[in-house]
Amino acid sequence: EPLWIRPDAPSRCTWQLGRPASESPHHHTAPAKSPKILPDILKKIGDTPMVRINKIGKKFGLKCELLAKCEFFNAGGSVKDRISLRMIEDAERDGTLKPGDTIIEPTSGNTGIGLALAAAVRGYRCIIVMPEKMSSEKVDVLRALGAEIVRTPTNARFDSPESHVGVAWRLKNEIPNSHILDQYRNASNPLAHYDTTADEILQQCDGKLDMLVASVGTGGTITGIARKLKEKCPGCRIIGVDPEGSILAEPEELNQTEQTTYEVEGIGYDFIPTVLDRTVVDKWFKSNDEEAFTFARMLIAQEGLLCGGSAGSTVAVAVKAAQELQEGQRCVVILPDSVRNYMTKFLSDRWMLQKGFLKEEDLTEKKPWWWHLRVQELGLSAPLTVLPTITCGHTIEILREKGFDQAPVVDEAGVILGMVTLGNMLSSLLAGKVQPSDQVGKVIYKQFKQIRLTDTLGRLSHILEMDHFALVVHEQIQYHSTGKSSQRQMVFGVVTAIDLLNFVAAQERDQK
């Protein structure tokens, strides 16, 4: 057995438009009618409502009807409940999964919650491996369901041993009777949507819809739904939504950006999952974080739909894509998950301010006199920076000697690579993860907040409520011999709460 199987392995699926269902090699399930009293909570997966979006479509000038398939009504709160249950049931049916076995899954959280929910009911041990950027709410729900959680670096490539995929496979090879159901490759993922989600949409719309818009992560949702719609409703256009920084969209030119990270969760990847059939997507749109969270908040405030950030991405694209539809036509959007997962993220004004998705003037509360002053007023001194090749031991000596707790790590040209902190280095040394002679590049981390000289002290204040420091950066445009230009970030300084307090105190003292 291989040590790991690539999540982007070539698909062996034989589905073709027009091929009889009787030739399918898979076990198919028909939607079942729910009894009045459910035998367990797993029976509350599927049969989610279709809700008309009344205000947002009109606000953006849509002539067509805009409908939302509300997947956050599933038992675990997301569309991923469907595939989690289906993968477990299919693994039980073919004898792969037996009582007492362990389920391991690399996930952005929602599939993990679905699997942990099913594992709690069915009696399996469950280990979820997820990147650090995923919300604390997801972690809390997983723990409450009895799952064990392993976190991995957000910026690790999918084929790196440190990625959530790599760590999951390492655990599988170490733990007896453990299984990775593997949402990236498992046919049960798109089949769950082909058999149930798509049929529900067709039934709820009486077979009449002209466009379907869905955000894409593993691709199982859009693949399964689109294949069924292509068979039953061939005139329906399928629109895929991919965040900026991901590479799922086609044509490839759409993916060209210097951005590699994004805040919206559960969609987009740096590889093409095996289950994603991009041939059934008629057109791709890219979405960005700001519009995703703005539209998610709009869905909550104006439509009462308590959905997550990827739902915002989907609707932001839908109001663009559906401009081509006329009166009497219908566009369906998939709202994948609930706001429950993001209470401390985009639902929080403070978080939105820190990330730059909300401006101070958007909030009406009274601010102190210094709130709208610029960061450049602080008069920061030149920063202490270190090269990635310097040793951890030497870096600790320098920081202690100069009285700093942290320093930016830059390359020879001064471009920011990340940050090192005294606390992080000492804990890594004590844990045996690094040696004093190791290069400081081994303990770089990139989960820090950046701020510009033109940003306000109010925004800085919000950042420092949650973080010990902020890195002050400025952009530099560099022209190359080819005539092309590129933008790079340079370090201007490091600012802490002490710097802000000293500035405010000094100004008030001078005024007296």
Rank of each mutant, 00 (worst) to 15 (best):
G240A: 08
V241S: 15
P243H: 07
E244K: 11
G245S: 07
S246D: 03
I247M: 11
L248T: 05
E250I: 10
E250M: 12
T257V: 13
Q259M: 11
Y262W: 06
E265H: 00
G266Y: 00
G266S: 00
D277I: 00
V280E: 10
V281R: 05
K283S: 10
W284L: 00
W284M: 00
F285H: 10
N288G: 10
D289L: 00
F293W: 03
T294A: 12
M298N: 09
L299W: 02
A301Y: 15
C307F: 05
S310P: 00
A311Q: 05
G312C: 03
V315E: 08
A316T: 05
A318G: 15
A321T: 12
A321M: 13
Q323T: 11
L325E: 04
E327R: 12
Q329W: 02
R330I: 08
V332H: 00
V333I: 15
I334D: 00
Y342N: 02
F346T: 03
G356P: 04
K359T: 13
K359E: 13
T364D: 13
K367I: 13
P368G: 09
W369F: 08
W370P: 05
H372N: 13
E377T: 02
T391H: 15
G393Y: 04
H394P: 14
H394S: 07
H394T: 10
T395G: 11
E401Y: 13
G403P: 08
G403Y: 08
P408D: 02
G414R: 14
V415W: 14
V415C: 11
M419H: 09
V420Q: 07
T421G: 02
N424H: 13
S427N: 10
L430N: 14
G432V: 12
G432F: 09
D438N: 14
I444P: 12
Q450G: 13
R452K: 02
L453P: 12
T454K: 12
L457Y: 15
G458V: 10
R459I: 12
R459T: 11
M466R: 11
M466V: 15
D467G: 13
H468G: 04
H474N: 02
I477T: 12
I477K: 02
Q478T: 14
Y479E: 11
T482G: 04
S485G: 07
Q489D: 04
F503E: 01
A505P: 02
R509D: 11
D510Q: 03
K512N: 13
